[in-house]
């Protein structure tokens, strides 16, 4: 299974659309892509997960790592358009209390 991430800039907002399945095999690819993003406190990052059809705890690890880096750099990070299943994953792990997460609906991160 493949994972794909596309970015688009809208002023100070960096929008990322992630597509595919995030598991043990694809998580390192996603991690690398997210690590490439240059963060500075002038930008906000919004990642659209509407096209993520599967994610396991390894995928969660990638977002946790990225969230920690964003927090360190004082960058606003938001995950949007999560499916019910993904939302639940963030909820039972307590991450939804910590990170800015928006389930369902039509976000403006579509590319």
């Amino acid at each position: 299974m493949d994972i794909n991430i596309q970015f688009r800039e809208e002023g100070n907002l960096l929008l990322g659309l992630i597509e595919g399945e995030i598991d043990t095999f694809t998580a390192p690819i996603l991690r690398e892509e997210l690590e490439k993003i240059e963060l500075s406190n002038e930008i906000s990052v919004e990642l659209d997960l509407s096209k993520v059809s599967y994610m396991d705890s390894t995928g969660l690890g990638v977002f946790v790592a990225f969230y920690k880096r964003a927090t360190k750099e004082d960058v606003n990070l938001k995950l949007v358009n999560l499916s019910t299943r993904l939302t639940r994953l963030f909820e039972i792990t307590g991450l939804s209390e910590l990170m800015d997460i928006e389930r369902g609906g039509i976000g403006h991160a579509s590319i």
Partner: peptide, 27 residues
């Protein structure tokens, strides 16, 4: 942050999900 346990209440013949939203260890 763990998969919620299941509690089966025999007299009620019903399950309860032991849900919690508390954070994973190590974060």
């Amino acid at each position: 942050g763990h998969e919620p346990p299941l509690y089966y209440h025999s007299r009620e013949n019903a399950y309860y999900d032991l849900e919690s939203k508390e954070l994973l260890l190590g974060i």
